[in-house]
């Protein structure tokens, strides 16, 4: 049966639908169902197990905010670790920073990277060929448990908490990340849409509280992550890093000479202001 519509199945009582112009790629394995199709509004759309993961046209909201907020807050990031993020969009933003000398991306499935190069070339825009980039095909949880290298910024670009990415939301995983953060290092995480799934941000807050001297969340409203603003987790030992004056961020942004479409220093500052119901959920 030809499909001309994709209905996301993340929630029972609410959901988004996409007209399918063309199915580009589909694979079904024992563990997951991957569908890539073209939609007039969003370009190529990738759905995993019925849930939209990324689209060609709105991915910059998420990737710019997950990358540039910790990188500009850090000031001199040299070593960056990306867990997940197989599509390469996050990597593309990270390698824009000249101070970065080394990026390791840990991906559980090599096929995801190849698939992304084929179907989402704009996500990585050649970043997979950057000489500073190292690809490790491994379980992210296992990697952080065994690596002894220090990291200035760790970015957790996970999928939904149901499925293979689930360990990337566990307390033990965060503990290992804290262990391998360099002094002044920052961890950022994908934490769901609080209006729809307040439990996720609540659970992460509980884990961060026990592990990090300073932690918080910041927001970005990605069109295809429906239900309003999504929260990104922020954890570090240096409480000053999320209080940087706007002038400092503007100076860093200007001297970095990085083109962005979503990120601005003012959005960076404002993103840490959370709605009251989210503050309450995280106990602040």
């Amino acid at each position: 049966m030809a499909r001309n519509e994709f209905a996301e199945t993340l929630y029972d009582s609410y959901g988004q639908r996409f007209a399918i112009d063309e199915v580009c790629f589909e694979s079904r394995t024992e563990v997951q169902h991957l569908l890539i199709f073209h939609n007039a509004k969003f370009g190529r759309v990738m759905a995993l197990d019925g849930v939209v993961q990324t689209t060609q046209r709105d991915e910059f909201y998420y990737h710019e905010m997950l990358a540039h907020v910790p990188l500009f807050a850090h000031g001199q990031p040299r070593r960056v670790l990306i867990i997940g993020g197989g599509d390469g969009g996050l990597l593309r933003e990270v390698v824009k920073h000249r101070s970065v000398e080394h990026v390791t991306k840990v991906e559980i499935d090599a096929a995801v990277v190849e698939m992304a190069k084929t179907w989402f070339p704009d996500h990585s825009r050649g970043a997979f060929d950057d000489p500073r980039f190292h690809l490790v095909i491994a379980d992210g949880a296992e990697f952080v448990r065994t690596t002894e290298d220090p990291w200035d910024v760790i970015m957790i670009d996970s999928t939904d908490p149901i499925g293979p990415g689930e360990v990337l939301f566990s307390n033990d995983f965060y503990r290992q990340c804290q262990r391998i953060l360099a002094p002044g290092g920052i961890m950022v995480t994908q934490n769901g849409v609080p209006f729809m799934q307040l439990d996720e941000v609540r659970k992460s807050a509980r884990a961060f509280r026990d592990l990090f001297a300073d932690w918080h969340f910041y927001g970005v409203a990605v069109p295809t992550y429906i239900g309003g603003m999504m929260t990104l987790g922020w954890a570090t030992e240096d409480a000053g890093l999320r209080q940087l004056p706007l002038e400092v961020l503007e100076e860093r942004f200007a001297s970095a000479e990085i083109d962005t479409r979503y990120y601005t220093p003012a959005i960076h500052r404002g993103a840490f202001a959370l709605p009251r119901f989210v503050e309450e959920a995280i106990g602040k």
């Binding site: 199945t9 929630y11 029972d12 997951q32 169902h33 197990d49 019925g50 149901i162 499925g163």
Partner: peptide
């Protein structure tokens, strides 16, 4: 539950 949810059944 998880298998059905990942398929997309939510009832």
């Amino acid at each position: 539950i998880r298998t059905a949810l990942r398929y997309g059944c939510t009832t």
